[in-house]
Design a protein around this nucleic acid. Sequence first.
DNA 1: CGCTTAGTTGAGTTCGTTCAACGACTGTGG
DNA 2: CCACAGTCGTTGAACGAACTCAACTAAGCG
Lengths: 232, 232
Amino acid sequence: MRGLTHFRDFTPPELDFVSRFKTGELSVEPGAIVLMEGSHSAHLYTVLEGWGFRYKTLEDGRRQILNYLMPGDLVGLQGTVMGEMQHSIEALSPVTLCVFERGRLHSLFADHPSLAYDITWIAASEERMLDSHLLSVGRRTALERAAYLLAFLYDKAVRVGLMEKDMAIPVTQQHVADTLGLSIVHTNKTLRKLADRDFIRWTDKGCLVLDHVGLAQAAGWHPDNRGARPFI
Amino acid sequence: MRGLTHFRDFTPPELDFVSRFKTGELSVEPGAIVLMEGSHSAHLYTVLEGWGFRYKTLEDGRRQILNYLMPGDLVGLQGTVMGEMQHSIEALSPVTLCVFERGRLHSLFADHPSLAYDITWIAASEERMLDSHLLSVGRRTALERAAYLLAFLYDKAVRVGLMEKDMAIPVTQQHVADTLGLSIVHTNKTLRKLADRDFIRWTDKGCLVLDHVGLAQAAGWHPDNRGARPFI
DNA sequence: CGCTTAGTTGAGTTCGTTCAACGACTGTGG
DNA sequence: CCACAGTCGTTGAACGAACTCAACTAAGCG
């Protein structure tokens, strides 16, 4: 993982601390709920492998997917620094997580400012993604929204090495609908249009991206070419 | 400002550093653009006074308001830690900002871990608000969305002391529309319904909240009662 | 073999949009 | 002082996007 040019290099002391910071690994099955809204988890996680997503629900069951998780993403920071979790997390594929203890976060801030800075970097990056999603859900048409989402997921997955050998994005159309804020029927009809243009193909494993340039164009989206990100 | 119970108390060394961290103040008029999408600002700001908002636009002019800024909010963190700004910021009322230099952020992380932690706290808090807004825009009806937004703004404004003596929320219906992802006409009709129920009254200064409990109920929203927040 | 889950499609309805016009108010220049 | 333009809120009418309801297919699984 760390070998990927996508992630920044750590100094030996940093690496040493991070490995001691780690208190265990957690593996979950597809469909499993990693963290639940309202819980007070004492842990902070990093995704090592697999796909997941963050979501919130209203009382009557309406669900909004907020973002997707891939290797390198931090999970549970909100719960760690602010107490209660305000969103849930579910695995889309088999996921392995690296578990950190909440208490040690303070020593990370105290003794490794560069790593503390990395955490802030990751938080700012997450905020940036949410900004883009909000713009999309609020102001793009259904077709643009769908194209944007798939282009975004494809782009993010490629960066972390999840898109090798024609991997599919492991989501159902229900996930897409709950991300875009659309009904499942309309989502289906919209994805159909993208498939008819040969931008994607839907398989039993999820969504195959055939033409990510076409998708980005249909969405009016320019992915930003940011540099190496930290991986804690 | 600092006297408000809403903000946490700082130790003398923290206060000393923060005051040296500060390099100046910036005052802007209503309607002025504080930061522009695409700019590479070398500064980080804290809002001292006034109302503003963060937004993104699509190429054809469609605008999405992402969040509103009030005293205590950090501005430009994305640009500071990640380079280019991906959103713009505009003032709604006369705004005064506290200016920090980007370079000193590193010494803040190095020498004042508790303040670094505060910055992460604020970033996580901003992310939490965006989560809620995304849920709202994606899954709530127009009426629920409008009620949620106004209840949210009222709640946030009260916490920072901006809601004294029947102050109005200084927005136009266009701002509300661009926040909710609705057209201005439909926004008007939706706000009319809230006004007919005596939850709000629209004045030339903006929106008067008459019944914030009613609004929260109409939105199906339960504000979280978080404790003291940091104020850098 | 029936059961379940996921995708597909059509028909009718609802919600939100666009277009258009109008009133109230503000500021500006003649 | 009035005429004018500009902004903002309001409302009606017609249209279109997205929703719900419903039925059907295909695949996976006990």
